[in-house]
Nucleic acid binder design. Sequence first.
DNA 1: CCCATACATTGATGCTGGTCAATATTCAGG
DNA 2: CCTGAATATTGACCAGCATCAATGTATGGG
Lengths: 116, 116
Amino acid sequence: MNALPTLEPSTEEACCTPAGQPALGADEAKQKSLVFKALADPNRLRLLSMVKAESSGESCVCDLTASLDLGQPTVSHHLKILVDSGLLHREKRGTWAYYSLVPGALDDVAGLLTTL
Amino acid sequence: MNALPTLEPSTEEACCTPAGQPALGADEAKQKSLVFKALADPNRLRLLSMVKAESSGESCVCDLTASLDLGQPTVSHHLKILVDSGLLHREKRGTWAYYSLVPGALDDVAGLLTTL
DNA sequence: CCCATACATTGATGCTGGTCAATATTCAGG
DNA sequence: CCTGAATATTGACCAGCATCAATGTATGGG
């Protein structure tokens, strides 16, 4: 939750053209890279796609595990990463856990790209 | 370059609600994850940001290396990954190599997210 | 209570990826 | 040509991550 600017001093004399623009600070870049790390795995992309494709808007782990030739612990692990990155929402009802897309989360990531 | 659908058989009897949607195939997901892998590193995000912030639209390696307390080989490595993923363009003029954003590339990635 | 089911957690393992030192390549100048 | 500067490539090292087996934790049914 640290949004410090951390502007680089830009202490170069000459070469091409001096880059006076602030660009991204080190901590800011590290923060933004977390979401892309979450998206950088094929199985997690498939999980997101499956949850999104579900007509009810939510999926349980048993359903997702069946479609992803992966072990159940591995699927739970991926789902946790997606929840921690703010992309998925988890709701437990009875013995089952239902995962759903956080509204607008994917659009927010798309916005991150255009405001690099 | 393989765009086979690879639909999963969806052989589950019942649980919550059956996911009849195609969603993402394994190879399709692997393909799309490559761009996000390229974006999943803080230093590469900073490189993209620096190139974008440059008023001339392009930056040379010497300039980028000076701002990123990283070794020159490491910066070249990251730039190669960004070029291979289709985000940056490389043009060599004389001894210098100038990198620029591929027009529309970031918007295409944003589009990938909404069409998951 | 006891057991089965659905899911999460832990620990271990193998592989991918980021980084650097050293070297190679390419180009401009003298 | 020869030298120096800018960049790319190679090889090696270490951290991080994806995966699985085993176990733990609820929850519901009998």
